[in-house]
Design a protein around this nucleic acid. Structure first.
Lengths: 241, 241
DNA sequence: TAGTGGTCTAGACCACTCC
DNA sequence: GAGTGGTCTAGACCACTAA
């Protein structure tokens, strides 16, 4: 902790920044064990209590997690935090109901202009498209449209590549592409003809729409995803204090 | 910290519970100054560091807030945390755009059955109804339907009682009814004829629906509110790590 | 048994607020 | 100046994990 940034920044904050820099610059990647508290303390020339406080804060922010007796690890992206996850089946009563997903289409095809531009391609570029339908029991409740950069996940369009419910596991393990972050935007709309047909609801029924941008290292966006779900099957509940 | 609950519960957790009990049982109400750290430490027979840790946790949970040099206070309910607050004007770009509200109807009238039952009345009871329309600039973007327990806020139906944008300020100050907590449930729907007309949108356009249950002391529900907003003007954005 | 995080203490010094 | 929270240290002891 040298630097000329000695002005007014608390020690524990500098320890936090040190760890975050290691993460953001790739010296530590999701799942890695970070150095132990005593190691960090002596390396950075602060007390273990200060390191503890820094790590406490990062754990509160979900950037790290601890495991007593083993060590402290860098968090992996947890899509259980997806906005959709908070939506419960029924009218807010349901717990974590499992949604089963099935691939309904996959191919290399010309991407729509918003997907091309968001992913950093010229309009009309070929993208890897995967469409999936999500079910609770046998009831279809959502449709996912995923657009991937084809060179990031080459061959994923092949029908023999198994796609697990949590697609990101495949991306990380098979293609060795770290998934670092995602942004989600939620809004509402009414079902178009195709969506209505897939979900078995009348056209123009209310639907929840979730747009997700998924990023890998160096702020590279690797997927544009649009998920459309039946509004009568999703609601979000929160408490205000 | 006596009690026979000496088993395995960390000291700081017991301090947290002590403070929370003071809040839940009304010995401390929102806005109150809690005892200072040294006072709590000696009273509970623990070190100041332990009290600090307990308070740290409660501050992280937004149950308390600190003000250096002054003390630590019990949080007041912050409706800026409303799910609607996170929704931004436009398509997720907007910052905190101000929504101006105007009362469009207020009267004592027979409540709908869901409002009566939720508020703990017999069906067909008279409730205090307030309808407001929310605008950005001059564009109507939401309609609020509020149902209050009439005996909690007597006279609020009189047209000379000014209703501020943040209605709860009036309730707390004029009627001395503490607002302790609220629950919100968010979902989507399509506009009915009346809503469409008020918002100036086609019937069956997509809308965001927010149901709010507002509670006072002793878990007494005092308001049932339904807010309906134009879906094209609201979107919720979040980041996943 | 050695190493990790988890709890708890005691005390120093600083920064802010109010009288 | 007295009282509050904010930062930081040093060290004790406990609980869990692994070899």
């Amino acid at each position: 902790m040298n630097q000329l940034a000695d002005r007014h920044i608390p020690l524990y904050k500098r320890v936090e920044n040190h760890i975050l820099a290691d993460i953001d610059e790739g010296r530590l990647i999701p799942g890695d064990l970070i150095p132990s508290e005593p190691q960090l303390a002596t390396k950075l020339g602060v007390s273990q209590g200060t390191v503890k406080k820094a790590i406490d804060n990062l754990v509160n922010e979900k950037r790290l997690y601890r495991h007593q007796g083993k060590g402290t690890y860098v968090s992996t992206v947890d899509f259980n935090n997806s906005l959709f996850r908070f939506f419960s089946y029924g009218d807010g009563t349901g717990k974590g109901v499992r949604i089963h997903k099935e691939v309904s289409e996959r191919a290399l095809k010309t991407g729509p202009k918003y997907a091309c531009s968001q992913l950093g391609y010229k309009p009309e570029s070929e993208l890897l498209y995967i469409q999936r339908c999500g079910y609770i029991q046998d009831l279809p409740i959502l449709v996912e449209h995923c657009w991937w950069c084809p060179e990031v996940v080459p061959g994923m369009e092949q029908p023999d590549v198994h796609i697990p419910d949590l697609m990101y596991a495949l991306v990380v393990e098979k293609y060795d592409v770290p998934v670092v972050r995602a942004e989600e935007t939620l809004t509402a709309d009414v079902a178009d003809k195709e969506t209505a047909q897939i979900l078995g609801i009348p056209e123009k029924s209310p639907v929840i729409v979730l747009i997700r941008h998924t990023y890998s290292r160096a702020n590279k966006m690797i997927e544009y995803r649009k998920t459309v779900g039946r509004a009568d099957k999703f609601s979000y509940k929160a408490e205000i204090r």
